[in-house]
Design a protein around this nucleic acid. Sequence first.
RNA 1: GCCCGCGUGGUGGAAUGGUAGACACAGGGGACUUAAAAUCCCUAGCCGCACGGCGUGCCGGUUCGAGUCCGGCCGCGGGCACCA
Length: 851
Amino acid sequence: MSPRYDAAAIEAKWQDAWDAAGVFTARHDAGRPKYYVLEMFPYPSGNLHMGHVRNYAMGDVVARYKAARGFSVLHPMGWDAFGLPAENAAMERKIHPGAWTYDNIANMKAQFRSLGLSLDWSREFATCDPDYYGQQQALFLDFLERGLVYRKNAVVNWDPVDMTVLANEQVENGRGWRSGALVERRELTQWFFRISDFSDELLAALDTLGNWPEKVRTMQANWIGKSQGLRFSFDLTAPAVGHDSVEVFTTRPDTLMGASFVGLSPDHPLARALEAGSPEIAAFCAECRRIGTSEEALETAEKKGMDTGLRVRHPLDPSWELPVWIANFILMDYGTGAIFACPAHDQRDLDFARKYGLPVIDTFLSLDNPAPVAATAFVPPKTEKVRWIDHFAGLDVATGEEAVAATIASAEADGWGRGVTQYRLRDWGLSRQRYWGCPIPVVHCESCGVVPEKKENLPVRLPEDVSFDRPGNPLDRHPTWRDVACPKCGAPARRETDTMDTFVDSSWYFARFTSPHAATPTDPAEADYWMNVDQYIGGIEHAILHLLYSRFFARAMVLTGHLPERAKEPFDALFTQGMVTHEIYQTRDPNGRPVYHLPVDVTDGKLADGTAVEVVPSAKMSKSKKNVVDPVRIVSTFGADTARWFMLSDSPPERDVEWTDAGAEAAHKHLSRIWRMADELAPKAAGSATDEISDMDLARTVARTIRDVTDGIESFAFNTSVAKLYTLAAAIQKSAAPPTDRAAALRTLVRLMAPMTPHLAEEVWAMLGGTGLVAELPWPKADPALLVEDTVTLPIQINGKRRSELVVAKDLAPAEVEKLALADQAVQRALSGATPKKLIVVPGRIINVVL
RNA sequence: GCCCGCGUGGUGGAAUGGUAGACACAGGGGACUUAAAAUCCCUAGCCGCACGGCGUGCCGGUUCGAGUCCGGCCGCGGGCACCA
């Protein structure tokens, strides 16, 4: 039997060799430049999925490449280990969330190891380790002292049957996912980070993040949502329920003469006050509150309103009275929770006005089509000039921008309003009424109020003896944990039973990796050496929340002395990789609800019992849709190198990739081919280990490949690097050069492949007489002399269409090129004696003859 | 609904505003083999015998030249603050 590429044997061997040599241990080496590459750490669901393989393969390419370029590399890994799934598992299977989580971590770590990633495991931690969350509690206390944390009331989704708070994803069509009960909004006192104090800075600093994707910066800028507008009040015609006016915020004060009604959020203090005296209004507000807490739910719900019967006076015309409505689409969290509506220039307001028979008043008209608004609101860009109708600030033809500025100036001059800068960004509510999270380290004392836990008592550990046989937070019903002495006065008191949002855990783990075992959150010397993260890699789904929260946390950590000043933007470069997608297979249960099936259980569109499945178009692989492919199966069938190679080939890293079995097989075939070439060349080229290649064609191909693969890696175009590696492999295979040449070329090829297929690279390197580990070799260098091209092929276009081509010396004078081009047969034929209207010669690129 | 992306052969994709389809998968043809698997070689956007024409979701624009830039649509995906 002929020898074959045996990935399983090769991969285990080299993983052991790397471990033995300790090549991936990060070393604080002041004499070398450092490089910190970080991939977003995973939630320990128990199993690696293809998205992980893709994410970590990309990070590993960068880490191994930078190591070869002489950097002291930090490439750590840990676990984002708190969160809901562990509690769900606890309820479903009567297993402790901690036990479930640590089992999952053990499983996933073994799977990680089989991928051969260049990770420094000595820095591993899980966010549910008391050592980690204890330091997080220390941070919280420092933030509290610095005034970065406070308490206020906020609404949650309340399941009245299960008597528990629900996450947005646990609310399905307004009902609790388990109980099916209609979800209510309930107000609780909760903890908040003052992220909104940093709105302007977080926005302005986006401009400094030149190595972040433009789209992420745009999304964050929109999320922060800075807007200039006017705050002013409408006076009620008569005082009612303790209110005599309604303050509104508007970004379009210029349309005030088009005001049709004043709208209140159902949560507005005035609306709440009216509820007490009107069962109708109370019923309407209650209905609004059932919509849920997510902005998506509010915005997609049918727009509804109710006339309160109150009237207000228009600030510019006391004789003009407008009705006050309560409307379900007005957010209490934005502005003042009250607006004036201008239906002529806002589609949502227009729909509302038409539905309830409210007036529609044009305030400006288009210059080219000055027709009044009918079915569609007239909402031109704010930079477009329009004609104003009787504008109170004296405008005639002006843009929206100019009109807003003029209106604010006029309102301030006349004293009825003031210009304000408003942000959409809200403070970050971090309280969660759940067990499996970091306890908030404070105690509630009747006489002292909210008392921080003493730092020497940290960590405040989660109690182990909890049960999940009832819904709700087990911490609330755990007397020996909950009931403590006040740290200040010693009187009986109660621990805070809320735990922290898991986004807190992931907002500083990158800093903790610089000194994961320090007795303080960070060690300043280590943080100073390793920060910032030079390259951060993760999914686009984290573009806003995780990254924005981390940017806030870094600032807060600078203010509390845990990070150096320059780390306030902690991620120098960000790369957002696309997702791994797969088709979704579903059948229906008797109620018509979808039941999902794993791809491995579906053959030719049918389940094992012959039931046909519906095929839903590809989407992000997710456990809930079961459209997942198990990487373990792929690794055990083909090897880690194949899985990695396939994840890096074909699709550009920032784009989604569709998983196909055929692609994985092709990757494996290619790696086998490389191995076979080495196996065949090894005896023929024995004893020769020089990099010199005598065959000039092959030498040039090798040099060009080094250049192109390097460029590809530097620019995160791994798929094009892979394509160039395919081309070199084919060139070596077909080359008639002597075996020593081909072996030398192959040795370079595998060194270039090493960041992607590290095990195969080591194996082939050793087979062909290389010494040492590829993982410790410097990156190959291309001989510049071999990269020089002396001729160039210029396409000749006639009227922009390629008709011929010309091979000329690279530096031939443009006048000469013109002559040769005009002499070309195809050009002669097209001209048939005439002279061209124009002749464009772009040196080294193209010739275009215009007839 | 709002914000942000993406759309190129049968498929994944390549292409500083300059030869559209590199590289690969699936396909077709061939070699080797008693046969098959494996492997190797050749072929290939679509229409057309060919000259040639048409082609980067759709419509329009800028340009000597547009997959690439601009405007408007359509479709798909991500996010929307308690999934992580």
